[in-house]
Structure formats: C-alpha cells, structure tokens
Nucleic acid binder design. Structure first.
Length: 149
DNA sequence: GCCAACGTTGGC
DNA sequence: GCCAACGTTGGC
C-alpha cells in the first residue's frame, strides 16, 4: 500500500466537503506529474488531505483511494474551465481517481510545524511547493499522523 | 494581493 | 531540442 498527499484549496473543496460527500472524484488535475501519480494509485492507498492557500496551510485529514484512475470527464466538456481541446474519448489526456473521507484531524498539522520535523526534511511538500498530488514515504506518513493526535 | 518558483508552450 | 515568454500555483 502506498501513501500520498493531495492538495485542495478549502474554498474550492475542503475536507468538510469531502466529509459531507463521503466520496468524490478528483477532477481538474492538469499537471502531468500529478496525473502520473494518480495513475499509479491503487484502491486502499492512504491519502493525506492538505489545505493550501489558507493561513497557515495545513494537513487537515485523511482519505483513501476507492477507485483507480479513469478519464477525467471535464476534459471533454467545452463549458468547463478544465476543457482540453486536444483530448478525445479515444485518447484522453487527463485522469482522476475517487477518494473517500476517512478522518478529519482534531489537530491539523500546519506547514510551519512540518518544516521543523527532521523526519520530514525530504518530504516532497517541502521541496516542490507546486505539485498537487505527491507521494509520501511511509515514515513521513507516520510522522505527520503522530502530530495530528 | 504580491510575487517567486516552476511547468508548459511554441518559435526558431 | 533549446529556451524565452507566459500562465499558474501557493506561501506569505
């Protein structure tokens, strides 16, 4: 089983939205690296849910992969801001997974705190600020969870 | 709201 | 295939 971190802007889709919905499809990813990470996800993989663009940004909960990569429908929708004219049903360019809500942390772990943890020094989040879907090492996952409780 | 960092596009 | 220009992300 693998571990991941997925970012969302809370005013677009927050952990509370996910808790309410139960499951959601992770549409709108338009970055090749992030897409490729989603293509390698397996059912049961663990996800850290991160809120970006809030003060401070923080890991706020957990989710789990419940459906593996399939074409992101918004790429075919001309009225969507995620529409991609280069994509076709035969040759989709963008994929998404479904995730389900697992837990909202009583104690979110803010970014400034993550930066102080030696075990997290190599975490992708702290070294490639732009990537919205990223792998997490098992020991990093453990270290984050330890601080959320 | 600013702006640095970085990914993508497209001209050559 | 290089790289400048451009657009977007996301911390502050």
């Amino acid at each position: 089983m693998a571990y991941w971190l997925m970012k969302s802007e809370p005013d677009v889709y927050s952990i509370d939205d996910l808790a309410r919905d139960g499951t959601t499809c992770w549409d709108g990813v338009r970055n090749f690296q992030a897409r490729n990470h989603m293509k390698t996800m397996k059912v049961g993989d663990e996800v850290l849910y991160y809120h970006s663009r809030q003060t401070p940004p923080a890991v706020v909960g957990r989710a789990r992969v419940v459906r593996e990569a399939y074409p992101d429908h918004t790429q075919f929708d001309a009225s969507s801001k995620y529409h991609d004219p280069r994509a076709s049903a035969d040759a989709p360019r963008w994929f998404m997974v479904d995730i389900e809500f697992v837990e909202k942390f009583e104690r979110p772990v803010p970014l400034p705190e993550l930066k102080t943890v030696p075990a997290l020094a190599d975490m992708v989040l702290l070294n490639n600020a732009r990537l919205s879907v990223q792998p997490v090492r098992p020991e990093e996952w453990r270290a984050v969870l330890d601080r959320a409780r």
